[in-house]
Design a protein around this nucleic acid. Structure first.
Lengths: 92, 92
DNA sequence: TGAGGTTACGCCTATCGTAATAATG
DNA sequence: CATTATTACGATAGGCGTAACCTCA
């Protein structure tokens, strides 16, 4: 599993739309579709119900969304990134 | 940033050794070195002090390790992963 | 000089985008 | 029949492994 997949997944969940998610991500729709499929295959669950008017989260998808957003939200912006500021030590 | 980078980083931090981390990860040493470099570049910090006897975490590295292990530990094993049982994995 | 990390280079896998296809109300 | 997701396919980028090089006590 990679963060990219979670990011795409979260986008689709937010937009409830593969195409709109793709637009928000600045990529093509098939790329989103593929990553979601991969994620579903790896997890062994169906994350979305594909409908002609868009995609709706399944129960498992909803549960994953909670975790995924939490993970994405706290990426790695705490400890190390703070040191990237001019707070004293800067190696290069 | 990808989970792969965090996984490699955590391995090096645990082993305090690029080569040993590579062995633990079942990959070659340069692969580890490259991913760590990428991570350092993205974060803008030096995560390890390379020494002739191994690698030691910098203060920023230590802080990142804490977050990384937490993230890796709670990957996505809650809701969806429950359905991901055997018969589906194909390595290389 | 030896242990360990990095750079160079070629291969292979994965991802992406465009276009065509299938499915559903 | 229109809208939306999927599959096919060629092109591109990224990651990995082997080999050679550099660095430091």
């Amino acid at each position: 599993m990679e963060l990219r997949q979670l990011r795409y997944f979260a986008a689709v969940a937010r937009e409830r739309h593969f195409g709109q998610a793709a637009r928000a991500l600045r990529i093509a729709q098939p790329a989103v579709s593929r990553q979601i499929q991969q994620l579903e295959a790896e997890l062994g669950v169906r994350l979305f119900d594909r409908r002609p008017r868009g995609a709706v989260l399944t129960a498992e998808g909803l549960a994953l969304l909670d975790r995924a957003e939490r993970l994405l939200g706290r990426r790695m912006r705490c400890a190390a990134t703070r040191a990237a500021r001019p707070t004293g030590r800067a190696g290069r």
